[in-house]
Design a protein around this nucleic acid. Sequence first.
DNA 1: CACACTTACGATATTCGTAAGGATT
DNA 2: AATCCTTACGAATATCGTAAGTGTG
Lengths: 309, 309
Amino acid sequence: MSAPSLSTRQLTAFVTLAQERSFTRAAAACHLSQPAFSALIRSLEDSLQARLFDRDTRSVQLTAEGRLFEPSARQLLGDFAAAVGDLHDHVQRRKGRVHVAALPSLAAGWLPAIFREFRATWPGIELGLSDILSDGCIDLVRSGKADFALASAGTGVAGLSTELLCADRFWLVCRADHPLATAKQPSLKALARYPLIHLSRNSSVRQALDAALHPIQAHSVLEVDQLATVMGMVEAGLGISIIPALTLFHFERDTLVRRPLAAPGLTRRIYVVRRSDSSLSVAAQTLHDLIVQRMTAARLQPAAARSLA
Amino acid sequence: MSAPSLSTRQLTAFVTLAQERSFTRAAAACHLSQPAFSALIRSLEDSLQARLFDRDTRSVQLTAEGRLFEPSARQLLGDFAAAVGDLHDHVQRRKGRVHVAALPSLAAGWLPAIFREFRATWPGIELGLSDILSDGCIDLVRSGKADFALASAGTGVAGLSTELLCADRFWLVCRADHPLATAKQPSLKALARYPLIHLSRNSSVRQALDAALHPIQAHSVLEVDQLATVMGMVEAGLGISIIPALTLFHFERDTLVRRPLAAPGLTRRIYVVRRSDSSLSVAAQTLHDLIVQRMTAARLQPAAARSLA
DNA sequence: CACACTTACGATATTCGTAAGGATT
DNA sequence: AATCCTTACGAATATCGTAAGTGTG
């Protein structure tokens, strides 16, 4: 009743012998001595409890049972090769799928170049990106829909592990004709006097900013949801804004200036968040490593240089 | 590129571990010590060149690659079991098909009881019977459409082997009111004076009879194709006939008498004919053996007793 | 007697189970 | 400390290749 132990070697030997109709030739084709090959066929027949070949000294022929089994054996070997081949394709990153969840501020400005590079290197890997707020990112990772997330929160959630990706410094953005435009590194105190355009409170950028500014009372004039809107408002002269370096690309216009703030602790921390109970797939690990590597490389250069590149 | 050697033991170990998520429990389920089981999983991972499990001391989880491979592994094991099970069904005669070619004179009278017995013992085996003349029987065997034949010819045909099944003695049949009806064992000479109903010359019965009678010139009155017609003609009083013992059932009527001929060499020989290059399937061999066995048993009794049974 | 498969046999590899090791809770 | 997987290692098993055996045309 219990399934006998069979190996692909036995099946390969079987179909080779069925095709060659000669132990000597089939043994050579399998890189075995003829007696060893003979024993291999015998072991298969013993396992199956069925005589598969009529071997006369003069001819080797499949028995009726052997003829019955041959198509199955070929099919099984083919399925085997397909399954193993598919696995190899994934391990060698010719196939696969990676889904990343990332804050919108990262998804628009910083990730595209990474994705382009990844896609050029591994064209067979499908990419997915959920550009949503931090809580949504965490949920996607926890539920397994995303391989990992680039988000601000995530520390202390059971089953997830976090790794600091970068501390994203805050920058001032204002109109080129604004009084602050002349300061190379404006101080926080200097900013406090001017109307500030905020992102809404459920944004991770805003949360990080509030936490960083904490003792200081900002002069808030407007809250919006999208960084692109912040840019429009600033350009229209409604106020200034404070935004992380990685979102500066929204503000790269001649009418605006961007200045790193003098307070070095004024950062939002971005983490790589992933499930702690399961390793990343080969493809996901590759993308993860690329993200970390490119981020590390970027930090070695002045942030301004990158944002203006 | 070359396919790695995998065994069903490895696949079974894999799916067991994937299900149990514990080396200790999975090893027990596979009747192996835990270290041996661990080595088995390792050997599979080495063969596939892919890590299939994340094993922490506290938890065992499939990797992304393992999750990819699991359905394939289950499918492969299922296909394996199905193929082996099907083979076993055939070897153990729960499934199969046997096709016999047999002379019409055997197919109608002697074979039905054999087939009934075979079918009662092996209800899963499909039976096929071609009740045709000897040449057609030989062709079916040579082409592989029939497993073996019960026929008169077949000796000396390349690629076929023949085995004598029986020497079928010729009997006289005549009306009960015929002069010959009183003789217990009429001689050939006595018969020669009466009109004889013949089968047509392409019948093996006729050929055997002609060969056996050779020096004697029979007094032929009529040739027909079917033994049933011979019976009708004899019963109608057109003549007598000489037919093999195994066809006597056609003539079992009160109006007729049947007498064994005094010439013991007057027989038609019936052979089992089969391909010499290939053994019989298990099912065909079983039917073959049954046929030989029942024929041998029948020969130990008086032929008359059988024909009248 | 030549050819092809099987058997015999010593050598090498693999696989096993027991026991010790290491890491985590 | 307890649990679970891995490593270590000697023993049992399996498999290999060479060489001799066997049977058939």
